[in-house]
Design a protein around this nucleic acid. Structure first.
Lengths: 133, 133
DNA sequence: GGCCTAATGAGAATGATTGTCAAAATAGGC
DNA sequence: GCCTATTTTGACAATCATTCTCATTAGGCC
């Protein structure tokens, strides 16, 4: 049960989702993405959009995170490993890196006998713009 | 909308929620908290549990964050801050601390003008027991 | 005690997400 | 190009946390 990453079949629908996502600068929810595709005539079933997003997330091709109210949002992601600093008011997200943290995570995992470790870090705060309101 | 913190009326139910939360070392979902209260005979309506948790979160008395699958979980603020190292096979979780990471998170937030920042770190790996299977 | 108003609770409503399963599409061998 | 085994799709039902509704109950205060 290793990550034998068996490639999925390539279909019009999956391509449409990947394409749309690649052209969007910001995070979108599955629902929004589905609506956009429909508006562009590239109609894809809602369940299929969810499945495509799940698959791409599992394969690490896109980033997924949660809004303050629990909705999952997705975005095409640069190949570099990074984390997010999200504003709890406006949802604006900043990508941040932290080599020190990467090392810490590796070390902690190793100390406890864990292998093949991945980690997720989310920092939520109030950004300067929202604070001054 | 400053912290005019107009005090809510104090009721048995709110006290029960606050109390229960104060005695739990870790995050719990509203559903779990509701079940626990029921089991202890201190029955409180589910909607009321949600309302109490919302109010306490708004007043900054407790922390709220989201699990990977979007469920809201809550914890009394005073608990020692720590993170989790979770096995992807058996679900076993180890609590870990990392002062360096805490400092890093604070620093990154400040650099980008974010205030009042909280963070969540989850490390997922395969533990020694599950690897040897 | 009695009044005013906020808080409660039971259940309905909401809304994102996931499951179901027959029909359609893909990859590969011929 | 054609056929077949398998995967993927899509419409809709099902799930499940969370919120809403509204009649009833219970604080706070005189």
């Amino acid at each position: 049960m290793s990550d034998t990453t068996q490639p999925r079949r390539s279909t019009r629908q999956q391509a449409a989702v990947a394409n749309q996502l690649a052209q969007l600068p910001d995070f979108v929810s599955a629902q929004e993405l589905h609506a956009q595709l429909r508006d562009e005539g590239e109609s894809v079933g809602l369940a299929t959009v969810y499945r495509a997003l799940q698959a791409m997330t599992a394969e690490g091709q896109i980033d997924m995170l949660r809004t303050e109210d629990g909705e999952a949002i997705y975005r095409a992601c640069s190949t570099t490993h990074h984390h997010h600093l999200v504003c709890r008011e406006c949802g604006r997200a900043v990508e941040v890196e932290g080599p020190a943290v990467e090392r810490w995570a590796e070390q902690v995992s190793a100390e406890h006998g864990f292998t093949d470790a991945h980690h997720v870090i989310e920092i939520v705060g109030t950004c300067a713009d929202c604070r001054t309101v």
